[in-house]
Nucleic acid binder design. Structure first.
Lengths: 144, 144
DNA sequence: CTTGATGCAAATGGTTTGCATGTTT
DNA sequence: AAACATGCAAACCATTTGCATCAAG
């Protein structure tokens, strides 16, 4: 099954699986979609959700994110320390993070294709990386 | 500077940098070395350290691990949820983890060379990945 | 009406911090 | 002696959980 990358697909999948569609789930999905490719933490998402639905509790956000991640609709990103962030599973992308200045370079999902091919050839492994973080030094920090 | 992969090199580096060599630092390094390529958490390390030095406090382990990581001697691994784990920076290696059965395939550090080359060419980014985890399906789970 | 989702408050786990004291250089 | 590392206890943050209530199917 291809990965979901918008609200309608997500809702459709949930319906197909007989899962319940609640206000919290719909609103969380809408906010993830609205943040388009950004990495939103549970807290950040909660703020946005609260603006329109003050009755939705933070713990519900956590449970909802957990649920949607378990369903394969969202993926969670854990960049080093700090809180987890979430985006649609269909928005696969990767990051190069500079250990010097913290700059983040966004990398297309094709960046790792050579590695994926190699894993397939050598190990029969079908890699499906939704979010990799690779550390190093950016051009400026190498020079400086 | 090449990455450290044993106690002596680590101590030498610290000495060269004018950093202090304390009991805690030495013992932590010894335990990381003794665990050879395993992923030890701060807590696991603390247990081992306590066996010989009951006076070394858990908070000191955390501070020491932080210090050694900051010095580039150790790297910290954050696999999904749960506590961080540590190993020598010189023991770079990567994992392919099967989402089906949980099997872990260990990958040599050269696996990502094509990607590293590409980042250098396209972004001037000097990647230094010490520990990547790539998810997917292993041969058996693809077939099954 | 049944099953599962939610609000709330309280607990948890991992990690960090302030401060007085002890150790390394 | 000066600078820094440590023990301890308390704080912290992100996240999870128990339980009574509420909503979706």
């Amino acid at each position: 099954m291809a990965h979901v990358h918008d609200v309608d697909q997500a809702l459709e999948q949930l319906r197909a699986e007989g899962e319940r569609i609640t206000t919290a789930r719909r609103v969380v999905l809408e906010q993830v979609a609205a943040a388009h490719r950004q990495h939103l933490t549970a807290e950040a998402l909660a703020e946005r959700v609260e603006a329109q639905h003050p009755d939705i509790h933070l713990s519900t956000i956590y449970r909802t994110l957990d649920f949607l991640t378990g369903a394969g609709i969202l993926v969670d990103v854990r960049m080093g320390r700090g809180p987890a962030a979430y985006h649609f599973a269909g928005d696969a992308h990767h990051h190069a993070v500079c250990s010097g200045c913290g700059q983040v370079i966004e990398l297309g999902s094709e960046t790792f294709d050579p590695v994926i091919r190699r894993l397939a050839d050598e190990h029969g492994f079908e890699a499906d990386p939704s979010h990799l973080v690779i550390r190093g030094l950016c051009r400026d920090c190498r020079a400086g």
